[in-house]
Design a protein around this nucleic acid. Structure first.
Lengths: 350, 350
DNA sequence: CCACCGGCAAAAAACGTTTTAGTCACCGCC
DNA sequence: GGCGGTGACTAAAACGTTTTTTGCCGGTGG
């Protein structure tokens, strides 16, 4: 799709005014270059009156330091990488938002690396980050294989893994507690009176899926009379959710879908069969995607503090970058929460 | 939500091996520093055999040039800014993806600036970009007021506006042709047999909304017997879509909602009233959000080539950066397309 | 009166490149 | 044999900072 061009015009660029150097500021303030630098970086070392004069000059000339030059001298830049599979996926987008917020607060630039499910591109970004002398990176790696990350590691670029566990001696990581998530989901179903519960799950090979199921089992064990079943969908999509709804033989009274797409599909499938949600079957989803509040009967679901993940990742990274010696690696795990909507009876909360 | 810490460990960082400098390469290859530089930047100037030797040394030492130092000398970096209101919004996320792809292809780093609807933060990012000496920026500005962008402009940082028109003499811009979008949406309704059509629109102050309505009018004018009405929603949300469905007095036979949220809500509201989509009323949405394929009856909608927007923006920006003198500003407009789903009868396509 | 010190400020040496202006050897030509 | 040219390389000067070292000056304790 080449697009059409509406209007064009020669670029009449303004005269590109050369930005002020530190030297100019020094001259304007009648001090030496080093004094200016000191005012900017260690104000306590310089006399208040002089500092004042220098600051005036800075303002007058609209001086901004050249980070390249500074980085050259100090050996570190102020940019960090964020590499993730797909910005378009709302889960990762939320991580990105959290990371962007934190980076902004700390004055770092966040360079967005969209690996797009292509391992070679992920690798390409890694080398770009070492080229750029990025000071660290938050990464949601494409595969669990940790050797892929060695290139960064051995170049001395600190890493924080997001949404993937990491042996804590290797570095920091942030993730959501999926066991707890599964537990609160099923606890809620039990609290709403459900006793015959089915987990509609994704592939067993996905860590998140087995964790959520494990949490569900923990919850069920607390109730003598409750039973737990499981159905595994090939893919975690709306379509498979519908299919599973059609295939359910004896209807359970509660269903925990380990993702909101499955849950949405399931609800639709049940509706087609004339089964009412939540009167006949109560449903809990997982993820609190946009879709959860849009489907026919809005979904009770488990919400993950994803922005917090991104934010924490950046902050842990910067701690490592700035503290260096005293930094202790940490695998921080966040607690999910429950969002109550129409697909459960909500007799009890939690 | 503080999160809990599972495991911690002292950071046993690998000895931070100082990266090789160009000087080391020169020594290893037995040539001067400038020769190495020439091999890397203007290979034609140096003897093939020498170049070979240098390249071997580069590989052996795993040398990567220091962009800060290079930028210091050459005066330009290789990073560009992408500032947008919200990465989490799928429209902007798709722009980001396109931009990231293009930036990656051209070897530029894309720094993500999430302005989050806060004008002062947007401004903060602008100054960050000039500090960082970014070579240019793609921006989806928060407000139409162009004076906000002057800070970048007068610092000589080229800009490409995305999703907002811009006088072409001031710079490049990319956008989607919303008039065409409105037209094809309503043309489709007409083609499906609808004659009494209502546009469910957003605030008149939003350029996109008035454009889409204008397109709708154009389409209707081609049919003598067709009539067009308009309802304006306070906000373009699912909730308002439902409300409007409830309030419709004499049902039209076709509805064009200028965004998919409205359309989804409308469908739900109609269903509550027992009105069948598409048998009684045909509905077309706009935007092809995820939601469009999830709602009860999946939505026929207008799809915008958003990734192309992002990609084109970056490419136009880099053209301006690299060509400078010969660059001609351009306001590129992309054509939307129609996605056929269940909410229209699809007697005719397009 | 001297040595020393503390508080400021300035000079100068990096940091890792790119690029300009050579240097040098060699060649062909009158 | 001198002379201009050319091809291949190098020395050295930037680029804009930060940081270490040095220097100055007035005050203070001995």
């Amino acid at each position: 799709m080449p697009g059409r061009t509406a209007v064009t015009a020669r670029g009449v660029d303004a005269i590109p005014v050369r930005p002020a150097r530190i030297q100019d500021v020094a001259a304007a303030a009648g001090v030496s270059v080093s004094t200016v630098s000191n005012v900017l970086n260690r104000p306590e070392r310089v006399n208040a009156r002089t500092a004042e004069r220098v600051r005036d000059a800075v303002a007058a000339l609209d001086y901004v330091p050249h980070p390249g030059a500074a980085g050259l001298r100090t050996g570190h830049t102020s940019s960090i990488g964020l590499v993730l599979p797909d910005v378009t996926n709302s889960f990762y987008a939320r991580i990105a938002r959290g990371a962007a917020d934190a980076a902004y607060d700390h004055g770092y630039a966040l360079v967005l690396c969209h690996s797009g499910d292509a391992p070679e591109r992920e690798q390409g970004y890694f080398t770009m980050l070492v080229e750029q002398r990025a000071v660290g990176a938050v990464v949601v790696p494409l595969s669990a294989d940790p050797t892929r990350l060695t290139r960064l590691r051995e170049r001395g670029i600190p890493l924080v893994l997001a949404d993937r566990a990491m042996p804590a001696q290797d570095g920091c990581s942030v993730s959501v507690d999926d066991i707890a998530g599964g537990r609160i989901a099923v606890q809620h179903l039990l609290g709403c009176g459900a006793r015959d519960i089915v987990v509609v799950n994704g592939e067993r090979s996905i860590r998140q899926c087995t964790d959520r199921y494990q949490g569900a089992r923990q919850a069920v064990r607390t109730r003598r009379e409750a039973r737990l079943g499981q159905v595994v969908a090939e893919e975690m999509t709306v379509a498979y959710g519908m299919e599973i709804a059609r295939g359910l033989d004896d209807l359970p009274d509660g269903v925990f879908c380990t993702n909101d797409f499955l849950a949405a599909g399931l609800c639709r499938g049940l509706a087609e069969r004339g089964v009412k949600v939540p009167e006949d079957v109560q449903v809990v989803g997982y993820g609190d995607l946009d879709i959860a509040s849009f489907v026919g009967t809005t979904l009770t679901t488990v919400r993950q503090p994803v922005e917090d993940l991104g934010r924490a990742a950046v902050e842990m990274l910067l701690d490592e970058v700035e503290a260096r010696a005293e930094h202790a690696h940490e695998a921080r795990v966040f607690a999910p929460g429950l969002v109550l909507r129409d697909s459960t009876l909500s007799l009890a909360a939690g």
